[in-house]
């Protein structure tokens, strides 16, 4: 039971990141690797601000803003200066690594005993203590999902969705697809940085290396969710990203707890995650080939 609650808590907090990855990968079709830098950016900025006395809520919002600005940079590099999307993301990611060390002044910043937006919300909610953190995390993730769904139904949101599928058409109807890429990446990485900020407060520390593999974890969540829900609309797709994130975190917790018996160590996690993503990417291709051979 405790395992399930923890899986859901983490699933929702990391789910914000999965929503961000959904926007860049699925909506914009932009392979944005900078999330590996913006996730710890959110964590380290929020942690530093909290340590220096900021309210954890204000610190989290500032973190989201910083993530948005950082990745508007990736978007600008790629759309205005024609740096390849992958490379633009990697450059931002590497720059953020140094920047995160600057922000914290050291590689790891503990937050134990400091106020946290997650636990403050949990205490405020009229819910028994064992479930309160889960409720707070769920509230944050579902609120973000609903806001995102609403945004994608506005004129601007619709144009953003169109820019991923058919940039030439967006231009023919009077919007600059380059601006749409920048805007989309900003929203995406704002969510990722917010996720980093909340995860840092939840786990009681920020670490400069906590971003390694963020993109793979986010993709795993998006893909697993899609495989289960097979979404046909944006609202279902964002729901699928959250569901996938919860399942993914659950799988990790199970692997950490029981994997030792099978000879796995926590350090094997990234390998396993990448294999899951790989399997999900390869499966449709293999299935297609098999079908063709049958025919």
């Amino acid at each position: 039971m405790a395992l399930l609650v923890h899986a859901l808590e983490q699933g929702f907090l990391y789910g914000l990141m999965a929503l961000g990855v959904y926007i860049s990968f699925r909506v914009l079709r932009f392979p944005d690797l900078s999330v590996d830098g913006t996730f710890p950016l959110g964590a380290s900025l929020a942690a530093s601000l909290i340590v220096s006395g900021w309210s954890p809520f204000a610190a989290s919002i500032a973190a989201a803003g910083a993530g948005a600005v950082a990745c508007a940079f990736t978007g600008t590099l790629s759309s205005r200066f024609r740096v390849q999307g992958l490379l633009a993301g990697v450059l931002t990611m590497i720059m953020l690594y140094s920047l995160n060390l600057r922000i914290m002044g050291r590689p790891n910043l503990p937050l134990l005993g400091r106020p946290s937006a997650v636990s403050a919300t949990a205490n405020w909610l009229p819910i028994p203590s064992g479930w309160a953190v889960l409720a707070a995390a769920g509230l944050a993730a579902v609120a973000a999902k609903l806001l995102l769904d609403l945004f994608f139904r506005t004129e601007l949101g619709l144009t953003l969705r169109a820019a991923g599928g058919n940039p030439r058409l967006v231009q023919a109807y009077g919007a600059d697809p380059k601006n749409m890429v920048v805007l989309g990446l900003a929203v995406s990485n704002g969510l990722v940085a917010l996720s980093g900020a909340l995860v840092a407060q939840y786990s009681g520390f920020a670490d400069v290396n906590m971003g390694v593999g963020t993109i793979v974890a986010g993709l795993a969540a998006v893909i697993v969710g899609e495989m289960i829900l097979r979404p046909r609309s944006v609202a279902w797709a964002t729901g699928a990203a959250l569901l996938g994130s919860c399942l993914y975190r659950g799988a990790i917790l199970v692997a950490l707890r029981y994997g030792g018996a099978l000879g796995f160590t926590p350090s094997d996690l990234k390998l396993l995650t990448a294999l899951v993503v790989l399997a999900a990417l390869v499966a449709p291709v293999v299935r297609g080939k098999l079908k063709r051979e049958e025919a």
Binding site: R153, E155, L156, L158, T159, R161, G165, N166, Y173, A175
Partner: peptide
């Protein structure tokens, strides 16, 4: 745009200037 519905495509086309946060 293939992943937008017919009416969403029309919404995209009937506005040719700045896009705001009004529902499409």
């Amino acid at each position: 745009v293939p992943d937008l519905t017919v009416e969403e495509n029309l919404a995209l086309a009937c506005k040719k200037g700045r896009r705001g946060l009004r529902f499409a």
